[in-house]
């Protein structure tokens, strides 16, 4: 069941390599579900910011503290820029860009329809198959 999917990142989390500057750890490039986990390597508390434009005009602080990952979810379509620095540093140490592009609704409802057919067939088979003989 889904727990395993959920636990994988935890189960296999690797010891962090020592590094002077905080840096993203393999950030994703695209997301079709509007969510992903951003992880980074850092020895000190960090500041993580998110913005939608290259100039970081609409920036917002996502997280400030000693964790080394954060779960992002529920983002609409768009290009998101994340940047990272140590709390007491003045300059940004690393940047990552993730493009969120949701599946088309046509595709989503296509799969939805196949599922609905199989499901209704199942209900039909069970109801029709009430013991008769």
């Amino acid at each position: 069941m889904q727990i395993f999917r959920a636990l994988l990142p935890l189960l296999f989390c690797l010891p962090l390599a020592a590094g002077a500057q905080p840096a993203f750890d393999m950030p994703p490039e695209r997301s079709t579900a509007g969510g992903f986990t951003l992880a980074w390597e850092a020895e000190e508390p960090v500041v993580l910011e998110q913005a939608t434009g290259p100039d970081h005009g609409d920036t917002r602080i996502l997280y400030q503290g000693g964790d080394t990952s954060t779960v992002i979810s529920g983002l609409p379509d768009g290009e998101y820029r994340f940047r990272l620095r140590a709390v007491d540093a003045d300059t940004w140490a690393d940047e990552a860009t993730v493009v969120v592009e949701h599946h088309s609704l046509a595709r989503a409802f296509g799969f939805f329809a196949v599922g609905a057919v199989v499901f209704l067939g199942l209900i039909g088979a069970i109801l029709r198959g009430r013991p008769r003989d």
Binding site: P76, H102, F119
Partner: peptide, 19 residues
């Protein structure tokens, strides 16, 4: 902060439903 979570036409969630 996470507007899609309230969206009733969230594509990945719709695909997930019957699966």
């Amino acid at each position: 902060e996470r507007p899609e979570l309230l969206n009733l036409l969230f594509p990945a969630a719709i695909m997930f439903l019957f699966n």
